[in-house]
Amino acid sequence: MSILELKEVTKTYGKVVALDNVSFQVEKGQVYGFIGPNGAGKTTAIRILLGILKPDSGKVLINGLDAWKDAVEVHKNIAYVPGEVNLWPNLTGGEVIDFFARLKGTVTEETLTDFYRRFDLDPTKKCRTYSKGNRQKVALICALASNAEIFILDEPTSGLDPLMEKLFQNYVFELKKQNKTVLLSSHILSEVEKLCDVISIIRDGKVIETGTLEQLRHLTRSQITVETRQQIQGLADFEGVYDLSINGNKAMFQLDSAKFSDIVKFISGFDVIRLESTPPTLEDLFMRHYEK
């Protein structure tokens, strides 16, 4: 059984369709990346998972429980970092973290002190004086210090400096080792590439692609650079070759991943000096899917 599961979930606001028949599942121990442009429906999906929004149709199950009806029970095992962290201006960061820790009921004082030190956060300052990065740290500490099984993180590193980003990533690796489940929504593709086992791309309320990074790469094209002693003939007519540019004995083009072995056979006849193949980055994937 999947630990998180959306089955044919649709959510509309008046005439605007925020989620259109969305399905995906996250298995226990997975780090699941959730990417998509602004307004694609990521936050709506997350809020539905948290039982803050009610889906118009479809099923949302967390640990086999209904995310809406059994919200309180479900939340005992969930830690959440919102996309935009809003805190209580007249409480200190420490007070906020303390309160949430008590609601979860499993966090010790030592753990928190350790987190304050590592994230370099002064918990005695009022929330209204915190910068965006510091508010983000408060939310991260709330989540990471808890003993939850499932971590739902909505752009968790926005506003953090690279050092803190690295620290956060280490914590995610740590969670992975403990066989915890992470749903990571992010714009920082290098982060998703580094951390996630499975990635879903969402756009206009629909999940348009799901798979491991390897699988996703297979769906797209690689950048090939080849240098030969003899000038290559006939590449332009080759099926699966795009954006070809030939400069003397050097050719550069995009290639459908499925055609790889064909092209290698073909060009070997031209006395290859050098062959470079660059797999598509997540960014290429992202751009390909997003550009209309």
Partner: peptide, 9 residues
């Protein structure tokens, strides 16, 4: 939403 993500009804 932050409060509701905890076990609070």
């Amino acid at each position: 939403e932050t409060i509701m993500s905890h076990p609070v009804s």
